[in-house]
Design a protein around this nucleic acid. Structure first.
Lengths: 395, 395
DNA sequence: CCCAAACACGTGTACGTTACCGATTGAACT
DNA sequence: AGTTCAATCGGTAACGTACACGTGTTTGGG
């Protein structure tokens, strides 16, 4: 059963909790006392102390202040184990992620699992919901969970027009919503965890600028400029280019709309541009059609390429130097941070930073091996190996 | 009071715990039962069930197997809150870190704090020990803690000759030791968390190789080649250079022994090398004397520089492009991971990977802003602001 | 002045688990 | 047969907290 009321109560009285938090982390010299000790110290009953500490009615102002004072002086620290036992709260959390781009979202799920594993001593119910892809089935699935009284929801918002109202309804209903991999800033979500898209574009531009020394053209291939993430990447790219790389000229962005064929043909068209671009920034994870076109034209070694994210097919291209760098968006970390922020809010009432922007990892040939252990192989191994093994492998 | 016996017991019987872990993370459909339900189902007492589940003596083999079977079928999941309440275990953990290089180790401490904050529902005692610098006071401090019966110790090992025996004694005594920032592989530490030094060197070489196009010399300035970390960085640097950058020639490494004056003068001497090196990799965090020498000779813009770590004085140099990149060793993450691994071992008996090698962050001009929030200002603000604020600011 | 309402506070129970003390059994030995 | 003793198991207190409920005290209005 969910614990709405309790959670809200906690949220309403943050001062008590922040005090407690600091006490927990304080020096070990101070022995922490329980509710019983402070009752005995004041010669009153533990019931009164309990009411006073929780701001419940039925306690006179004098005793209230006395209790609070001696609680402070005795270094009162609530025994969370006892509290959890008594309340028998089980946090219910739903996770809505797409199936598509498995290399990304499987790692993200792993990150959530890893964080959940670390939350000892509280029993939680984690419901993973999977829909085919962003914009395809996500709305229906999320709608179903609205009435289910979840304590928290982790979600990757796709189209703001359809998803934002749902998030607002969830929040209004009392659920804490954390966005991951993409943000929905115009909603009541308590946090959005994602990679800093502007910085991603900036890094791509800086790397190209440092690699290409002569005057040249550079191009970008993106997914969909209507999504915030892709637009910001492009803005960051263009801005850094304009500021620090006057010798590079930017060709207008090409949208692939995440369709392989369109990406492939747009790339072929791009290569006919005169003069041919010397650098290329592919800001969507769907880079394979683009790379295939380049390969067929034997231009993989002529054009400096920056890609996005990391998956099996990219590895050899980075190893061989055909890709200058790829910007890894750290899905594992994103999932872990999202879960931690959610739990911390639900349990301690601490509001996380509204938007957490991670630094993408710059994957080069020389540090590539460090990232391979995070990479999922092709989807087929999903059934092989028992769950325990998979979890333990991802420490 | 420490919980040695309990912990060891758990470690001896990992099968039970891994089963439980998988149950916790399993689908929500399966309702989890308590010790009471399984006792009732078998018509025996909860005392017997408890003994059976924990492998304690006094249970006949038949009932033992019966209990284990029905525990499995009923999806038994121990209520950790109740367990913690009853046992009233308080984990005692000591953290031994140097004072020096505050920008690094303060962040590391913050990471430990952040992870500790996330461990809800268990009361732990965190004792931070601080000594002046590696090799100066660390041995004495660690020796004092050997008899104190800690459950776990996080330590940055300096000189293996003096520290390794202490770690061995700690481990033999029952404490779980996690090394951080530097490893002590020839001991019984359960894990070592650090940045992949070989990759760091490789990245530095690759960045220089991609930036410097013509035939040239490159140099390295390191701290102390006798420490594993610095030696590995240099090996990685030389290896990548040899493999991928035939146009760059490596000047023999210069050791600063972490002494500013020595570093300064060695740099001046280096700049008289003919031809003057076009690239420089400073693999120690003590890069300021080197940079000062370069500045005085007006060569900051002539030489491509890769530094190590990130602190206040480096920021403007990265911003202005005088430093090509700095390799950030992510102390916050190191501390967080070290603590998480330790807790997971103590509570669940899960042995972490013996050595975790993090990927360093490549900090360029374009992604520098993303890292500034982790950077501590100059030491003076340490006293300002109450602890609560500092903790909450570092979400 | 009295009764009741409002208020202040104490008491008791339950949460699930562990640790401990007895109770019961059965076998071995005197 | 009586005694001892180990093996096996049941029963229960206690961990610290939350909350419902009961008791005692003050207040206010008729």
């Amino acid at each position: 059963m969910p614990v709405k009321r309790q959670v809200q109560l906690v949220t309403e009285r943050p001062h008590e909790w922040s005090t407690i938090a600091s006490i927990i982390l304080s020096d070990s010299k101070a022995k922490s006392a329980g509710i019983k000790e402070i009752a005995r110290a004041l010669g009153i009953s533990i019931g009164t102390v309990d009411r006073a500490l929780h701001g419940r009615p039925g306690v006179s102002p004098k005793t209230l202040s006395k209790v609070l004072r001696t609680a402070e002086s005795l270094n009162y620290k609530p025994n969370l184990a006892a509290r959890n036992l008594k309340l028998n709260r089980t946090l219910r959390i739903a996770v809505h992620l797409p199936q598509e781009i498995a290399s990304f979202f499987d790692s993200l799920r792993d990150g959530i699992h890893a964080a959940a594993r670390n939350s000892h001593g509280l029993n939680l119910q984690l419901d993973f919901r999977t829909f085919p892809r962003l914009g395809d089935g996500d709305v229906e699935l999320l709608e179903k969970d609205i009435g289910r009284d979840y304590d928290g929801v982790i979600v990757t918002p796709g189209d703001p027009v359809t998803i934002d109202p749902l998030i607002r309804r969830l929040a209004q209903q009392g659920a804490a919503v954390v966005c991951v991999a993409n943000d929905a800033p115009r909603t009541d979500r308590i946090a959005g965890i994602s990679v800093d898209a502007t910085a991603s574009g900036g890094i791509a531009a800086e790397l190209l600028a440092r690699t290409i020394k002569e005057n040249a053209f550079v191009a970008t291939i993106t997914g969909n400029l209507s999504t915030l993430d892709h637009a910001e990447k492009l803005r960051g790219f263009a801005a850094t280019l304009a500021t620090f790389a006057p010798h590079l000229t930017l060709i207008p962005a090409i949208e692939s709309h995440e369709r392989p064929k369109e990406a492939y043909q747009a790339t072929l068209a791009l290569l006919h541009h005169s003069p041919r671009p010397a650098g290329l920034y592919i800001s969507t994870a769907n880079s394979l059609p683009v790379l295939r076109a380049l390969e067929e034209k034997k231009l993989l070694n002529q054009v400096q390429i920056i890609t996005t994210d990391l998956f099996a097919d990219l590895i050899s291209l980075v190893e061989s130097g055909k890709i200058l760098a790829t910007l890894y968006q750290r899905p594992f970390t994103q999932g872990k941070l999202a879960f931690e922020a959610l739990i911390r809010f639900l349990l301690d009432g601490v509001r996380p930073d509204a938007s957490v922007r991670l630094a993408p990892h710059i994957v080069l040939r020389s540090n590539l091996p460090l990232f391979l252990k995070h990479i999922h192989q092709n989807g087929t191994d999903r059934s092989a190996g028992n769950p325990t093994n998979r979890l333990h492998a991802k420490v």
